[in-house]
């Protein structure tokens, strides 16, 4: 009875909620087509143009607005995210595999790993910077910053793999052993193909988290900036619609990344699904 009244009210509320989530993006998207180089990062739109997109790629005529240093920063961020993704996924799979058995210190190690995602980035960045300066190690995006990124993304990969192994029927592994196949080869030929969808999710997690990470990177990356640091740099100075245009592009890029993941996932799931349907018909 109440639900007849309540449900529509809540539905309207959820609509407003989504508007709250997406509103800024709409505004950002609209303002990225602001006229340039005089047009500012606010309404009204003086004239629709793609100036700021051209500006981003260095195709616009020189003006007082300096171009965003995204070329190299983008390369660094992608490389760093790739390195982080591989390392934390490998560590995540290994650790989750270890957690399938009982061993002494298991719960302490669990908390140690989860700590990596709970401790705020500023603290990890600060600590790493302190260790680096006192030991005289140079800070680089590919060394110290890489370590802080793995500390952050590895727990996510670990938890994803833990959930996957929780539902994993280990009798297929035992079956493989009993056929005379060594544990290592069993992992390669049976376990890994079966946990692969989980590995993909862990990789996606690790990549996106690392790609977007900046609070750890801020203190630990040294001189060369990653992409989020380049954007963070614009906070202090006057912002121009080129940042908005850049936001639109990164969003599109993120979605294409997501699409690649979805395609890979569908491909690996489709066979099983098609088979299940055929079985249901038969």
């Amino acid at each position: 009875m109440e639900s007849k009244v309540l449900k529509p009210i809540l539905a309207v509320y959820v609509g407003l909620f989504l508007l709250f989530l997406y509103g800024p993006f709409l505004v950002l998207g609209i303002l990225s087509f602001q006229q340039g180089p005089e047009g500012g990062p606010q309404f009204p739109i003086t004239e629709w143009s793609t100036f700021w997109y051209k500006h981003l790629f260095g195709l616009a005529p020189p003006s007082r607005v300096s171009p965003l240093p995204i070329g190299e920063a983008l390369f660094r961020s992608m490389t760093l995210a790739g390195m982080t993704m591989i390392t934390s996924t490998v560590l995540g799979v290994m650790s989750a595999q270890a957690f399938r058995k009982n061993f002494r210190g298991k719960s302490v190690i669990f908390y140690l790993i989860v700590l990596g995602m709970i401790v705020p980035g500023v603290l990890v960045g600060l600590g790493t910077a302190l260790v680096a300066t006192t030991t005289g190690i140079d800070r680089h995006w590919w060394s110290t910053a890489f370590a802080t990124h793995v500390v952050y993304t590895f727990p996510f990969a670990f938890l994803v793999m833990l959930a996957i192994f929780n539902r994993f029927d280990s009798s297929v592994e035992e079956a493989s052993w009993s056929l005379g196949v060594s544990p290592l080869k069993t992992f390669r030929k049976v376990t890994f193909p079966l946990i692969f969808p989980g590995v993909l999710s862990a990789m996606l997690f690790a990549f996106t988290l690392s790609y977007d990470e900046f609070s750890r990177t801020l203190f630990s990356s040294g001189r060369d900036q990653t992409l989020p640091l380049a954007i963070y740099g614009t906070f202090t100075v006057e912002i121009h619609p080129n940042v908005f245009a850049f936001g639109v592009l990164t969003t599109i890029f993120s979605f294409s990344l997501l699409a690649v993941y979805a395609i890979l996932m569908t491909l690996s799931v489709r066979r099983a699904k098609r088979v299940a349907i055929q079985e249901a018909i038969a």
């Binding site: 029927d169 297929v172 079956a175 056929l179 005379g180 196949v181 049976v190 099983a272």
Partner: peptide, 27 residues
């Protein structure tokens, strides 16, 4: 050899590859 109650077949392989598994990857 061990035959499981739930069969424990390798779900990602064909019937042939299941049967050939021990021969291919065995010691």
């Amino acid at each position: 050899g061990f035959v499981f109650q739930n069969f424990a077949l390798f779900p990602h392989l064909s019937v042939f590859d299941n049967v050939a598994f021990g021969l291919r990857y065995g010691i």
